[in-house]
Design a protein around this nucleic acid. Structure first.
Lengths: 211, 211
DNA sequence: GTCTATATTCCGATAGAC
DNA sequence: GTCTATCGGAATATAGAC
């Protein structure tokens, strides 16, 4: 993410405060205090409070959509594609200092100033549902409702974000594979495949890290 | 829930608005407009805005804790107890006109005026984790992290509440068993048991309905 | 780029008439 | 039990000095 050091600090602390107290529960004064500047100084870097959240969501959606494209590009089973996507995009919580994925279902995006984000989130949700549908059609997944699964992912990632922002001792490094294992166990027609699927994801994540 | 008709209308519309826009994103004027009264008239029925949310949470926690006690009282396997609790407490979304379960992880409860609710929610989370741990110790469940499972339930129910409040066409009647099946499939050591476990829950829910 | 000072709007809550 | 009128405080955002 580009911008001056102060600008990055604003994004970092805003993401953490939004995660703890929500968008409306966080004031521009709270953000400024966390950064160590006065409240009006925020408006030199951002034209409005909602621009801060919009930029956080845009950056995260770009990365998450990239993870989806990366997963789809693998020449492998739907189970491995899905598991990799879930683990990799969840793991991005760890490597990014801030993350707004948990807001993907938030009612905040019904506000007119967030229309661009709402439309992009809808596209992302649709593509996630298509990934699940493909696995169902191929017989790899049980006849689950793709909309339910997509909403389950959103709920689990929202809760994961909350856990990171509200619980300093959260064992966050285990969560990405816990989450992807949890969802795959719930949808796989043959749960015995999970061990191999997980191993494939681990080797792909290692490859991504090295290259 | 006791109280005059207007008081019940306030609780109903407040729950829906909190679900759509969050606690801070909902103003007392929004609630009053939905009920069809003027904003100060709210304060004849409730001494403060936070008393509205507190009452919603108290009523829901009473019911949910009752479901947990009911599930624990059954002389059966941990899988059947857990599945019944998840389906029954999720189904309460349908029979109650309003519900605040989705807020159980909300940062709002770190505010001092919600201390009572925070402590009761912590007790509820602990008991849920104990139910999962018992199933793990008995070998019925995989060696999952009870804290992760409890947070997963919270995330899934939060998303379920959001779906009900933001999507008028949501197929909400299927969600309770979808949710309990989803979680049980993810934790059962022997996934083949799910059919029987689900059947047991369905017959228990029928029995509960008949009295 | 950050500051002080302040405009403006909005929110929760109270007072008192009916 | 609901209303009109309004208070006090807090929130976002702007103006202009440094």
């Amino acid at each position: 993410m580009t911008g001056s050091r102060t600008r990055q600090q604003i994004l970092l602390h805003a993401a953490r405060l939004f995660g703890r107290h929500g968008y409306y529960g966080t004031t521009t004064r709270d953000i400024a205090d966390a950064v160590g500047i006065r409240q009006p100084s925020l408006f030199y870097h951002f034209s409005a409070k909602h621009q801060i959240l919009a930029e956080l969501v845009d950056a995260d959606l770009r990365q998450t959509m990239g993870r989806l494209a990366q997963a789809e590009s693998f020449d492998t089973s739907w189970a491995e594609r899905f598991h990799f996507f879930l683990a990799a995009s969840s793991r991005d919580y760890l490597t990014l200092p801030y993350d707004a994925r948990g807001y993907y279902s938030d009612a905040i995006f019904t506000e007119p100033e967030f229309q661009d984000q709402r439309l992009e989130i809808e596209r992302f949700h649709k593509r996630t549902q298509q990934l699940v549908s493909a696995g169902v059609d191929a017989g790899e997944f049980l006849g689950v409702d793709p909309v339910f699964i997509q909403r389950a992912i959103t709920g689990l990632q929202f809760e994961g974000m909350r856990e990171r922002e509200t619980n300093a001792t959260a064992p966050v490094s285990e969560r990405p594979l816990q989450l992807s294992d949890f969802i795959l166990r719930a949808v796989l027609s043959d749960p015995a495949r999970l061990g191999a699927v997980r191993a494939a994801t681990e080797s792909r994540l290692d490859a991504v890290d090295r290259g």
